[in-house]
């Protein structure tokens, strides 16, 4: 009678994830996976695994609880080795992002033409670039902007996605449909291309890249979150609350959102890696923090001309991006396996 019913005949559910997830870790460490299941099974009646403690949605405490629940066991003896490596790398990256500028051995911005294009050596572990700047120092300094900007993009996108999807869920069916159609249309532009257009229109700066990426990515995130909310909405406990007379807003706030946030966190953690690569790509095409800055993508672009004579200028930043993207990707996967109730019940 309201649009909150499970509605056969509505648009098809978006596929949340094309490939089933937990296989990676199961394959690489089959025994660990099985043991992990059995620990979790203690005291947990079937059908509720994954819900181990209260989690007030979207509060810092709730976010912390979600993350800690996701990370719990990652350091444990039984965690798959891949997950442990991933988290160690991610933690190292976060540390570098924070203290990088302070431990950089050289000034990352000071051009010293006499030292141009020196190969890796004891003095310059990763060599120097065409302006004679130490590549390692630039990498360490750039880590903060590159990683924090990517995380900021994902956080902002997720917040917008949750808010808009919630508004859609609270609105009459027609409004909901219109909002989702708007997302579809915005998604007709590849995120990379749209972000490039926006960033170009806004002018070159890190801020405009972040804004551009958020504008380009929120429709996709909103659609995914809407799908997650719709799934939760059709669960029996939400229907139980509905028949006791809880309003749409109450359903959303007390039942749907708290039980959807785990999936949303999973989604967000999976997006960080894509954001890193996307931002690097944009920087590579010339939109991003303007030249002297040590953005990793820009460093790859800048070293490209010298690849035949000085491979290190472009190789190390590229490697850094790759490692960061893979580590965040693996971490997202690991968190998903831990948080996503539908994967755990398999």
């Amino acid at each position: 009678m309201t649009s909150l019913t499970r509605n056969p005949g509505a648009e098809p559910e978006p596929a949340l994830e094309p490939e089933p997830g937990p296989e990676r870790s199961r394959l690489l460490e089959p025994a660990a996976e099985a043991e992990r299941e059995s620990i979790d099974a203690e005291f947990v009646p079937a059908g509720t695994r994954g819900y181990r403690r209260v989690n007030e949605w979207l509060t810092p405490a709730g976010l912390g609880a979600g993350i800690s629940r996701g990370l719990r066991g990652l350091f444990g003896r039984r965690a798959p080795i891949v997950d442990r490596i991933a988290i160690v790398i991610v933690l190292a990256l976060v540390v570098v992002a924070i203290i990088g500028p302070f431990i950089a051995p050289y000034d990352p911005y000071l051009a010293q033409p006499v030292d141009a294009l020196l190969p890796p050596s004891a003095a310059h572990w990763m060599g120097t670039d065409d302006a004679g700047r130490d590549v390692l120092s630039r990498l360490l300094t750039g880590a903060g902007t590159t990683l924090l900007a990517a995380i900021a993009v994902v956080v902002l996108t997720t917040v917008i996605g949750v808010v808009v999807a919630s508004i859609a869920a609270l609105s009459p069916r027609a409004v909901d449909t219109v909002i989702m159609r708007v997302c579809d249309i915005a998604m007709a532009l590849p995120a990379m291309v749209l972000a490039l257009g926006i960033a170009a229109a806004l002018g070159p700066s890190l801020g405009s890249v972040v804004v551009a990426m958020v504008i380009a990515m929120w429709p996709g995130t909103t659609r995914l979150v809407r799908g997650i909310l719709r799934v939760t909405m059709s669960s029996a406990y939400v229907e139980s609350a509905r028949v006791t007379g809880v309003s749409k807003a109450g359903l959303l706030a007390r039942h749907v959102l708290p039980n959807s946030m785990d999936s949303v966190y999973v989604q967000a953690s999976m997006e960080i890696s894509g954001a890193i690569v996307l931002m690097a790509g944009l920087a590579y095409l010339g939109v991003g923090a303007p030249p002297p800055s040590a953005d990793w993508g820009a460093m790859v672009a800048q070293g490209r001309e010298y690849i035949t004579t000085a491979w290190w200028v472009t190789t190390f930043p590229g490697l850094a991006i790759t490692i960061a993207a893979i580590a965040f990707g693996l971490l997202g996967d690991a968190i998903r396996v831990r948080l996503d109730p539908s994967l755990r019940r398999r």
Binding site: L28, V277, G281, I323
Partner: peptide, 20 residues
């Protein structure tokens, strides 16, 4: 599977530079 993970994380433009 290791290859899949790697290939999924490499930025294309950098891979392109390396291949070239």
């Amino acid at each position: 599977r290791i290859l899949f993970v790697l290939s999924g994380g490499v930025p294309v433009f950098w891979l392109a530079i390396l291949l070239q």
